[in-house]
Design a protein around this nucleic acid. Structure first.
Length: 258
DNA sequence: ATGCCCGGAGCGTCCGGA
């Protein structure tokens, strides 16, 4: 069973690319980020026609998350993180499918550092960690999937020295990610490839794709119950080379069906 | 130090992204 994550950077503008990739990759579950559309403009008909059901939480212009499922029904468990009722950003949606709790995450970018956006990023991270801890305590299979906007280590950045004061690589950001892992989560991509340079994002600027100047930002955090079921992981890197493509590539993991 | 490229909103040219 393949579960994928894809920051589409605008689901309506990206629809042809998304549909082409769905047809090719056939994931059972897909977590999408950066829909950049209101909920009423979510392209449900096209997604349904491609063979997927969906739950989504949109927002005008920015953010927006969705979970797609090929066969199994999605039972939505929440559509925001607890801990701040004033936060109106659509950055989290969660459902149960295949007896797995699946949290779809679009963590704030946080640039520029320092400033209120960076503070918001760290606050959001704290709320995520608090919720993640509760999920682990339930002792059910859980995965927290999506665009974390964090390069966890120097291996995840094409040129680490350029990113020292970037919100995605600041020591506070990396520390927050490590604290989250320490609860008992496993970064599935890194677990399978401890020493490999793997990127999931290439900026549109400065010919980043052509130079392979990438970042690893999209992560799968697995609860302990899922580790023994992890068969394979990968990045559909070629999709980043398509016309009118996102700046992220789809990332996926393959689990043994229980 | 700045612009470089994109999508969205909306119609000139911003903002936010990472």
């Amino acid at each position: 069973m393949k579960i994928a994550s894809y920051n589409v950077n605008g689901i309506n503008g990206r629809l042809p690319v998304l549909l082409r990739w769905l047809k090719e990759a056939k994931p059972a579950i897909v977590c999408l980020q950066e829909l950049k559309t209101t909920s009423d403009k979510f392209p449900l008909n096209a997604i349904n026609a491609a063979g997927y059901s969906a739950i989504w939480h949109g927002q005008k212009s920015w953010n927006g998350v969705a979970i797609l499922s090929r066969k199994e029904p999605l039972n939505e468990t929440r559509r925001s993180l607890p801990g701040d009722r004033t936060d109106t950003n659509s950055r989290y949606i969660e459902a149960i499918a295949h007896q797995i709790v699946i949290g779809c995450i679009y963590l704030p970018n946080g640039n520029p550092y320092p400033g209120p956006k960076f503070d918001y990023k760290l606050k959001w991270f704290k709320r995520l960690s608090a919720h993640a801890k509760k999920l682990l305590a339930h002792d059910v299979p859980v995965m927290l999937v999506g665009d974390y906007n964090v390069m966890p280590t120097e291996l995840d950045v094409y040129k680490p020295e350029k990113y020292i004061d970037d919100a995605l690589f600041r020591k506070e950001t990396r520390a927050a990610y490590q604290r989250l892992l320490k609860q008992g989560w496993t970064d599935a991509i890194r677990y399978k490839y401890p020493d490999k340079r793997i990127y999931t994002f290439w900026d549109y600027l400065r010919n980043a794709w052509g130079r392979d100047a990438g970042l690893r930002l999209d992560h799968f955090l697995l609860s302990p119950q899922l580790i023994s079921r992890l068969k394979a992981v990968g990045v559909d890197k070629h999709v980043r080379g398509w016309d009118k493509t996102s700046d992220h590539a789809p990332v996926w993991i393959e689990l043994k069906t229980k």
